[in-house]
């Protein structure tokens, strides 16, 4: 019986551990960010690197939608705290946390990152996000 408890405790510790560790960046993300950085430098030679504090502004920036007459931001679907699960604004579908600290699948696949920037920037801001906004946004999410 005691044996079993030890084993249970041992395995359950794996469930808690990730919450205390920094979210790792995989090679694919590093590559994606370095390409994004090179593009940003090309667009603006004074570019010095992506910045989480600018990314925070991107995350909270509101846009008044031209058709729906409602204010939208990243917060609308991802809440003020990206480490919490949330709900899709129109369908109510559960959205897993955006933060890689609690959801290790996030920001591991460059195709997915681009797909969601394309969809969500359009929905929120009615335009594509800029190179700078994308990089800053990711740095903000990883700074949390």
């Amino acid at each position: 019986m005691f044996h079993r408890l030890i084993i249970l405790l041992f395995f359950s510790s794996f469930l808690i551990l990730p919450a205390f560790a920094d979210a790792p960046r995989n090679e694919e993300l590093n590559h994606y960010l370095s390409e994004l950085g090179a593009k940003a430098k090309k667009e603006d030679p004074s570019f010095k690197g992506f910045d989480p504090s600018r990314g925070k502004e991107v995350y909270f920036k509101e846009h008044l939608h031209s058709q729906e007459n409602e204010k939208r931001s990243c917060v609308t679907c991802h809440t003020k705290d990206p480490s919490l699960p949330s709900k899709h604004a129109s369908t109510g579908k559960r959205i897993k946390p955006l933060s890689p600290i609690v959801n290790r699948e996030r920001f591991t696949d460059s195709k997915k990152i681009e797909k969601w920037f394309k969809r969500n920037c359009h929905w929120t801001h009615e335009r594509p996000c800029t190179t700078l906004e994308k990089g800053d946004f990711i740095e903000y999410i990883f700074s949390l």
Binding site: Q67, E68, S90, K111, K115, K118, R119, H122, W123
Partner: peptide, 9 residues
């Protein structure tokens, strides 16, 4: 698509 761009690759 119901107010969203859900186009796919």
């Amino acid at each position: 698509h119901f107010g969203e761009d859900a186009s796919m690759e």
